[in-house]
Design a binder for these strands. Sequence first.
DNA 1: TTGTATGCGTTATCAT
DNA 2: ATGATAACGCATACAA
Lengths: 318, 318
Amino acid sequence: MARAAGVSQATVSYVLNDSPNARVSEQTRQRVREAAARLGYVPDQSARTLRTGHSGLVLVPLAPARTGRLVADLLDDMGEEFGARGYTLVQYGERRLKGVAAAKAWAALRPVAIMVDASRLTKASVELLKASGTKAVIGFSAGPSPLVPAVVLDHEVIGACAARHLLDRGCTRLGAIVPREEGIDAMGVGRWKGVRRHAPDAERIDLAFSEEEAAKVAARPDLPDGIFAYNDEYAMLLISALQDAGVRVPEDVAVMGADDLPLASLMRPRLTSVHFDTTASPGELVALVDAIVRGEREAAPGAVMKLFNGRLVVRDST
Amino acid sequence: MARAAGVSQATVSYVLNDSPNARVSEQTRQRVREAAARLGYVPDQSARTLRTGHSGLVLVPLAPARTGRLVADLLDDMGEEFGARGYTLVQYGERRLKGVAAAKAWAALRPVAIMVDASRLTKASVELLKASGTKAVIGFSAGPSPLVPAVVLDHEVIGACAARHLLDRGCTRLGAIVPREEGIDAMGVGRWKGVRRHAPDAERIDLAFSEEEAAKVAARPDLPDGIFAYNDEYAMLLISALQDAGVRVPEDVAVMGADDLPLASLMRPRLTSVHFDTTASPGELVALVDAIVRGEREAAPGAVMKLFNGRLVVRDST
DNA sequence: TTGTATGCGTTATCAT
DNA sequence: ATGATAACGCATACAA
């Protein structure tokens, strides 16, 4: 490249990076830019990483369980935010690896930060990542993590919000669905606990995502008259089972969901859902990670960053 | 690292890579492995990339339009498959960039292969990628691409399958929803064309994903008696609008979806859907990309890899 | 069986 | 204002 432009490598570097203290004549700049365009020259990120010692990579290994729209949107927005700050957010698809084996694969890329489901981290893996230069190791989880600072969705608040709404509507005996599904059961328990804040004797109803299981629940003679179904998908599952069983919704049993899925609003009767406003979160989160990476802020293990701050709305279209 | 083990860099490299023609004593291997474990040493991928000239990275820049479950699952499976073959699949989200600007961002990572929505590629960007060492540039699209070999979902076959089923059920006047949504309208047209294979005068009904729009369609006095609604989401939208308008489904108007979403089977009446079996595709696709990368196979622009091969099933639960 | 030397593309320092 | 040069960590040809 340098040869093609008839200048030195260093000059190329200055021009293409708009180096602040670069003293390069406009004429030379032109020559360099023209040569770059002609050759289709693109600086090599790996060489840059090797030289500078940092990759600008923010690694997000995908969660083993498929996550919902909420997380997908969050990642989209964070990608934009990180990009604007000069980082590159990359989703890394290798769901099988766990513990140190996973950490080695991640560390090989020398990411500057990594945001990953806390359940995939161990003490050893966090140490490995830190030792290999990762500035910020952040976990996603349902609660504080002893290993890393964690991004937490406050599931109890969601459950409490739903319970309050059901009680306001006149329900007297509440129940909460807890999904029997690897990876999301912990969140289910959190939401159920939240329901119990307002209804101490709310029943916990474990349910796998299948029509057979739902039919069994719907056939029970002693159903609560208000059920928070964990999220919109489980709510739809439950409602269809109740309808099949001849139970009137919401007259006999009121059902609430959460996540406010677009599809859920198409159910008839319309589904009432807890909606979380996370619009501000991506920016805040990225700013925080940036600060940690730059060493301007500390975040000790056990610290918690809430994914939203009480911005809950019940969308009730009945 | 080499110092810590008391051996040379070269020996470390031999041991950690299990070099085929490496003749290293078992004793030395032990020492190296032990030192690596003790230090939490992980080879630097950027240095390796720089030296070898290839990164092993398979880049999948995300589509600008929100993709469905089908693509998400496909990516999951391909991630596993690529991992098993020594590649690393990463999803790189930089949605704003287009054309050559996007290609530059991608090329900086020196990926060995890139799989991307064909609409984001231009002649110049493909050349840039090829020039910077990307062995395989593969497009996702609704049909053959003049620029690159393409992974194609045969939308016409899907539409034809739905049409046949509706006709078999006794419908006489067919319609097909074409989504009015950036990025997926082309697929909608393809599916509509497929419907016309069996029903030449099938009506094209453009529809944005909103309840207002759907209500307008549902209020029409001259509705077809069989509608293929593009996919399950649009089918649910349309069905709820029809129900609100007092139209009986499926007695007055039969509606079919596609994708076989788990949620869609929870609608009452149950939704009939075209299901594509793509289970074999990820493996085949990855094997093909691997062959192209290794130069064992050619794939010229215009070539087409079908995402499934006629493995279509109508799930009809009425 | 193991060590030494070289170069990949970039950036930073120093020299011109 | 620009060029020469070293060093980043690794893989590999070759020497020992």
